[in-house]
Design a protein around this nucleic acid. Structure first.
Lengths: 339, 339
DNA sequence: ATGAAAGCGCTAACAC
DNA sequence: GTGTTAGCGCTTTCAT
């Protein structure tokens, strides 16, 4: 036989299927002897409980649905890894979907996930997403949902995010305290939360110290290696180089490093570079880049924990926001003046 | 109401639930007008089909279970990404589990997955795994399973792997043809398939050209950055440096680069380095490392395709092995002598 | 064209 | 202690 059911065990033992069900759950109704016997034959017959059937009438699947924009980005794969870690530990399965940064695929994924009756949803919005319709549907179905990293920014759902602005301004203060004043920012696009907030932190810190940011020293670009490379070329054209480049993320920082070196500059002797990032990815790179460390595992675990919490207590208050702090890591890409 | 069922729609329209079910499937039994009406009210009431219920009596879940050792390794996250890509395209969900290289967790994951009645299984074995018991259970339950990257090496299940030995020997031939003869190998552990096969390829190519491999020039170590670093230090102690280091993988190559540089050597002028790896991860590194490129997406897609194929045709022959070729990519870490 | 009945594998409520 | 009954939401015969 291929798929053994409880009723097969019952037939084998000439008892009722309910007895089998109870014994398998360790229900006190059933005598120890009987329970042992049932478990033994279940084992022997290669019985594997059908979770689908169990889910159907318990209305609980112990399954979490995750939506990420892209798993090739190691920031996300680290997040997912830590989410699965925590979920597994708590007895939940994870159905993982990828939106490829497309709103339409994202919506489709969420529809599938609620069709699968996941107990909860963890989503990092695609860059395109503006329509909140599907999320109101989720709300109506009372499926707990947590946004992480990227959110609508309008509240309404619990979320777990990093403190971009504070991270940027804090880091800037440290850099300035070190004695640097000529600092330039390779910003992301200002129509993204991340790009905007990080640039704000940059400006705020400069303002506090009364440092004038030359207008040419905020260079908008994308978030990829090539964008950092190109931004550096633009910067060079202005003729005046800063002491420090603050990159919007690690990939941009690496691109900037590459271009700087190709221009004959030594890092950190001639120019220093730092940016948002996370430790593991920049470990391989030479020089190791000074970063405002956003630990993806911290985010993944926090989000999964928050979700499972709100699955447990049905009446938990819906709106909660967790803001994760980051840690500034001095590394080789910036020369310490004092110490 | 929170969870709309077909019977709710039926009640609303004062018709039978069966009519609703059929209409929702576009069954020809139901008139076009009725069908339209039903679909409209379903939409209006926020009906989302319960896939769990559907799965229960169709005995099909359209779900694939994946087991990987570690998602922080970007080789695996790229594989998973491509698997999800292909699965989604074909209308399958993916439940992702991580074994953390532990046999026990791996077994637990597989048990859960078959409990969820996945339609098929894709597994990359943990380093520890030796017990085949759970896999025989899978076989007995007639759940299609494909091993990828790491296998028992004993056949019995279909598998998708890279051609390690041929990749190594091919690459060595190219290096030798370039005029290099003093080549050393930073091998992985010889009790792993990967370590053994790559070293075999190394020796084979040297043998073909009648080059004697100094016994000290195969240095066994692990598969991580620090292992490459340490192997280089050991190599240096021998007093004689080779022209080329062939690293068992990209991480080891990076570690070797680091150590070489710290010893005052220039790459590629003083010493060349290459190894197995994949393009994206080594892109960031400076110098870009010459690699025997094992494209993880190729592996992920091939494995998922093979699995879905064998899910479709119930009686497909069980044993199939796909061996993926790799491509040799000349990059900055080796000086071309000829050209 | 529409509906009634049965069942997917399991569990909870209630008898015996 | 053990068994009977009913039902989770859906689909699939088979009647009407």
């Amino acid at each position: 036989m291929v798929n053994i059911r409880q009723s097969d065990i019952a037939k084998e033992l000439k008892i009722s299927r309910v007895t089998v069900s109870k014994a398998l759950q360790g229900h006190p109704d059933i005598s120890v002897a009987m329970t042992k016997k049932i478990i033994a034959t279940a084992e022997k017959m290669g019985y594997v409980p059908n979770l689908i059937a169990r889910q159907l009438n318990s209305r609980r699947t112990f399954t979490i649905g995750i939506v990420v924009p892209d798993l090739e980005n190691s920031f996300f794969s680290f997040i997912v890894d830590s989410m699965i870690d925590f979920a597994t530990e708590q007895g939940y399965h994870v159905i993982l979907t990828v939106s490829r940064e497309k709103e339409k695929i994202e919506r489709q994924n969420i529809e599938n996930l609620i069709g699968m009756r996941v107990d909860g949803l963890l989503v990092c919005l695609s860059q395109e997403t503006t329509d909140t319709h599907i999320f109101r549907q989720v709300e109506k179905m009372k499926i707990p949902l947590i946004f992480f990293d990227r959110t609508f920014g309008t509240g309404g759902f619990p979320e777990v995010v990093f403190d971009d602005k504070a991270g940027a301004s804090e880091a800037m203060r440290k850099i300035i305290a070190e004695g640097y004043t000529r600092i330039c920012h390779f910003a992301g696009y200002s129509d993204t939360c991340i790009g905007r907030l990080r640039a704000e932190g940059f400006r705020e810190a400069l303002g506090e110290y009364g440092i004038e940011a030359s207008s040419g020293w905020i260079i908008e670009g994308g978030f990829e290696v090539r964008d950092g490379y190109e931004s550096f070329l633009k910067l060079k054209e202005t003729g005046i180089l800063p002491e420090i480049i603050f990159a919007v993320n690690d990939r941009v920082a690496m691109g900037a490093c590459k271009a700087a070196r190709e221009s004959g500059l030594n890092i950190p002797a001639d120019i220093g570079i730092f940016g948002f990032g996370f430790a593991e990815i920049t470990d391989f790179f030479d020089p190791q880049i000074t970063i405002i460390n956003q630990d993806p595992r911290k985010m993944g675990t926090a989000a999964m924990r928050l979700l499972i919490d709100s699955i447990m207590k049905t009446s938990g208050k819906r709106e909660k926001k967790i803001v994760l702090g980051e840690e500034f890591l001095w590394r080789n890409s910036i020369k310490r003046k004092k110490n």
